[in-house]
Design a protein around this nucleic acid. Structure first.
Length: 463
RNA sequence: GGCGGCGUGGCCGAGUGGUUAGGCAGGGGCCUGCAAAGCCCCGUACUCCGGUUCGAAUCCGGACGCCGCCUCCA
C-alpha cells in the first residue's frame, strides 16, 4: 500500500485515490522571474520521482504544475530591465523548461499559467466578497482569515498563536496582520486586469487554488510543494477553498530545503546557486542521485563536495550499464513495472525496493538496496553466472529508471587517430610489448580518453 | 513568545530496541603484464547526563548546541 507523510496529520498515512487507479496531483510551480536555483531543482526532482514511482506502481497519474507568470518579482524585474512583464516571464519560463529537461524532470500533464486564469480568479474573489470572507481596501482585496474556523491547520497552530507571532508589518486597513491579498489594485505602469472590485492583478495565493481545482476538481488527491510553501501559501489556498465550500487537497506533501552551509537557501538570505550553473559543471544525474540518497523531507546539503561524491557514485552505475549494455531509462519516458520482468533474486529486489518506496518514498533505502544489487550483479558475472547477473543488472536499471535515474553506457565517436592508437596498442599488447602499450595508453589519455582493458581488447571512452 | 525539526564513523547520509544501511574517501587482498573496472575483507559512530529494559543510536526525562516556520521563498 502506498503511504506518504501528510503534513496536515503530521504522520505517514495511506495515500488514497479519489478514483481507483488514478491519482490527481498538484505541485506548486515557479514564479518565472529569474534562473531556476537548486531549491527549484530539488522540489521538481522530488515530485518527479514521486510521480514516476506512482506511475511505475500502476497508477494513472494526473500531474499538474503551474507557472506563475505575473507577480511583484516579475514586475520589478521588468522595470529594472526596461522590459515587459511578458518578456521577462517568457524568457525565464524558457530557462525553466531547459533546466527541467536537463535534470530529466518529465513535463507535467498540464502547466496552467496564472495569466490564463484571471477571469476565474475574479469570479472566486467576487464570491468571497459576496459572502463577506473578503473585503476591499484602498490597495486591493483581502481575505479575512478569521472566517475560516480551522485556519492554521497546515501551520499546526491555531490562529491566535499565529497572530501573536506575526511579523507582518501593520496595515491599518487589514483586519488582521494574517489577512492576505487576493487582488492587488492596479498601479500605473503595471499590468492589470479589469474587475468589478477595481482593476488590478491577482495575488499569488489565489492562482493555485483556482487552477488546481479547475484542472483536478474538488477534493483532488495530493498537493505538494516545498516546505516553505506550507505556510502561508498552502494554508491560504486551503482557506479560500474552504471559504468557497469546495473540498480541497486530501493529502499534503512537502519536501525539505536545500541547505547552503548550515543555512536554508532562501530569497531573503540571497545565498543561491542557480541550477543552470550547477548543470554547466556537472552531470545532471548527480543532482538526482544526491536527491535520491537523502529522504525527501530532510534538508540536503548541496556543495561541490557532495555533488562530486554523487558523481563518483554515478560512475559505478554507469560502469554497470557498460558491462551489461543496459538501455538508458528516464527522461520524458515514465516507466511502468508491468513493462519489466523481475524473476528470482530480481523479483525479491523489486519487492523490497517497492516496499521502501511505497513507505513515504524511502529513496535512501531503495538506493542502498540497488547498490547492493549492483554488487551482486557484478559478482554473479565475475563468477560466470551470466544469466542471473544480467537479470539482476536489468532489475537495477529498471528500478533506477522508476525513479528517473538513467544508467548510461556512453558510447563516444572515436576519431580515426584515436582508433589507430587503440589498434596499435592491441598489437603491442599481443606482442607483449608492455612499454609500447603503456606509451600508447598515455597518448590516448592525453587525448582525453579513459582507457580500460577487457577481454575484447582496449576500450576507450571520454573522461 | 508559539510551533516544528535536527545533533550518527574522515565526509555525505539512512536507520521502525537486539544481527553489516548504502555511497564516497582510506587500508588489505584477488584478478590484471601494469593500470582501470570488478569482486572479497577491514576501521572507527551514534552531542552529553540520567532513566526504562535482559538489551537503546532507536523509548522517556533533562542539559547543551544547531536549524527552520509564524514576512517573501521551492
Amino acid at each position: 500500500m502506498l503511504r506518504l507523510f501528510d503534513s496536515v496529520h503530521g504522520e505517514v498515512r495511506a495515500l488514497r485515490q479519489r478514483e481507483a487507479g488514478r491519482l490527481s496531483m498538484y505541485v506548486c510551480g515557479p514564479t518565472v522571474y529569474d534562473l531556476p536555483h537548486l531549491g527549484h531543482g530539488r522540489f521538481t526532482l522530488v515530485w518527479d520521482v514521486a510521480r514516476r514511482w506512482f506511475t511505475f506502481s500502476g497508477l494513472e497519474v494526473q500531474f499538474v504544475s503551474n507557472i506563475t507568470d505575473i507577480d511583484d518579482n516579475i514586475i520589478n524585474r521588468a522595470q529594472r530591465e526596461e522590459s515587459s512583464e511578458e518578456q521577462v516571464a517568457a524568457l525565464y519560463e524558457a530557462h525553466w523548461w531547459d533546466a527541467m529537461a536537463a535534470i530529466g524532470v518529465a513535463r507535467p500533464n498540464a502547466t496552467p499559467h496564472a495569466t490564463q486564469y484571471v477571469a476565474e480568479m475574479v469570479t472566486l474573489i467576487e464570491s468571497l466578497l459576496a459572502s463577506d470572507v473578503a473585503y476591499v481596501t484602498s490597495d486591493g482585496v483581502y481575505f479575512d482569515v478569521s472566517r475560516v474556523p480551522d485556519y492554521g491547520l497546515l501551520a499546526g497552530q491555531p490562529l491566535d498563536s499565529l497572530r501573536a507571532g506575526a511579523r507582518v508589518e501593520a496595515n491599518d486597513e487589514k483586519r488582521s496582520p494574517l489577512d492576505f491579498a487576493l487582488w492587488k489594485s492596479a498601479k500605473s505602469g503595471e499590468p492589470s486586469w479589469p474587475a468589478p472590485f477595481g482593476a488590478g492583478r491577482p495575488g499569488w495565493h489565489t492562482e493555485c487554488v483556482v487552477m488546481s481545482l479547475d484542472l483536478l476538481g474538488n477534493g483532488f488527491d495530493l498537493h505538494c510543494g516545498g516546505l516553505d510553501l506550507k505556510f502561508p501559501h498552502h494554508e491560504n489556498e486551503r482557506a479560500q477553498a474552504v471559504a468557497s465550500g469546495r473540498p480541497f487537497a486530501q493529502h499534503w506533501g512537502h519536501n525539505g530545503w536545500v541547505m547552503v552551509g548550515d543555512q536554508k537557501m532562501s530569497k531573503s538570505l540571497g545565498n543561491f546557486t542557480s541550477l543552470t550553473d550547477l548543470l554547466e559543471k556537472t552531470d545532471a544525474r548527480a543532482y538526482r542521485l544526491l536527491v535520491l540518497r537523502s529522504h525527501y523531507r530532510s534538508p540536503i546539503e548541496v556543495s561541490p563536495a557532495t555533488v562530486a561524491d554523487a558523481e563518483r557514485a554515478l560512475a559505478r552505475l554507469d560502469a554497470l550499464a557498460r558491462r551489461f549494455e543496459l538501455r538508458a531509462l528516464g527522461g520524458e519516458q515514465l516507466e511502468r513495472a508491468s513493462d519489466f520482468v523481475f524473476e528470482g533474486d530480481a523479483s525479491d529486489l523489486f519487492n523490497r525496493v517497492s516496499e521502501a518506496l511505497d513507505n513515504d518514498l524511502d529513496t535512501p533505502s531503495a538506493v542502498a538496496m540497488l547498490f547492493d544489487a549492483l554488487s551482486d550483479a557484478n559478482a554473479m558475472a565475475d563468477r560466470g553466472d551470466a544469466n542471473s547477473a544480467k537479470e539482476m543488472a536489468n532489475a537495477v536499471n529498471a528500478l533506477f529508471g522508476s525513479m528517473g535515474l538513467a544508467l548510461l553506457a556512453t558510447t563516444n565517436e572515436i576519431d580515426s587517430a584515436s582508433a589507430t592508437l587503440v589498434r596499435e596498442r592491441d598489437e603491442a599488447r599481443a606482442l607483449r610489448d608492455w612499454d609500447g602499450a603503456d606509451r600508447l595508453r598515455d597518448e590516448l589519455v592525453a587525448l582525453g580518453w579513459i582507457v580500460e582493458d577487457s577481454s575484447a581488447g582496449t576500450q576507450i571512452r571520454r573522461a
